[in-house]
Amino acid sequence: MDEILSLDHITFTYSPDEPNVKNAVEDVSFTVHEGEWIAIVGHNGSGKSTIARLMNGLLFPQQGTIKVMNEPLTEENLWEIRSQMGMVFQNPDNQFVGATVQDDVAFALENNGIPYKEMVKRVHEALQQVKMDQLLNHEPQHLSGGQKQRVAIAGALALKPRLLILDEATSMLDPQGRAEVLATVQALREETGLTVLSITHDLEEAILADRMLFMNGGEKFAEGTPSEIFALGDQLLDLGLDLPFAMKLTKLLKQDGVELQGEHMTEEELVNDLWTSNFKK
């Protein structure tokens, strides 16, 4: 599998002149391969959003190298690299630049000098992918939060990026909006195999990922599949995260002496295990 992005021993501080201030990111390394969905989790202030800003050159690390498509990220190739990475931010209102849905999707295309005819084609395609093609001329104030975030995703997709970064893109949405956005990302993954990196503290979002990176105090605390990470159990709780519902319930049931075969991340698995271990005759 091709390497899309790699961080190699990255250290970053917002105040390089004050040695007493803790680094925002401390010696973090990881690699993202083509077609993967990676989730970076951690409580607020764990350094996860700083990492997102380092990845597309909004910030530059004091130590370490970031490679995108095997090329080190520098001031020179910055714009080229940004066009390969779509990014969706937290606040749906503060990233909507265009006057209407279609204008906003076209914004990045205009910036990259894409010819008009090609733009029209790409804007429509991208809006179809996020199922917003019926609302081409809607103004942002008439859209829900979830719809605005889907427009933002379309705006990123229009440039045909190699990697889509979601920086807490669902944290300001209502449950309906969150579900909409996650369904959109899942459908995109199925249809196009898009590589996704999501930064989140929503565990239901993290479970969907292939691999999780768990940040704490600017350091990478753990890395692994969601089941490996959630197996950390109480350590996660101590570091400000929660466990998925099924795992919490499994834990409580085991305490009460109910027989179960293993740990479960999804409710379906737990129901089945409860049935086979305790009720099936």
Binding site: L58, R82, F89, Q95, L109, E110, G113, P115, V120
Partner: peptide, 17 residues
Amino acid sequence: TAMEVRGYRGGEGRTRY
């Protein structure tokens, strides 16, 4: 920030939608 990430660097070389 959002504009920068989406490749905005002034009117030079921009096309119009």
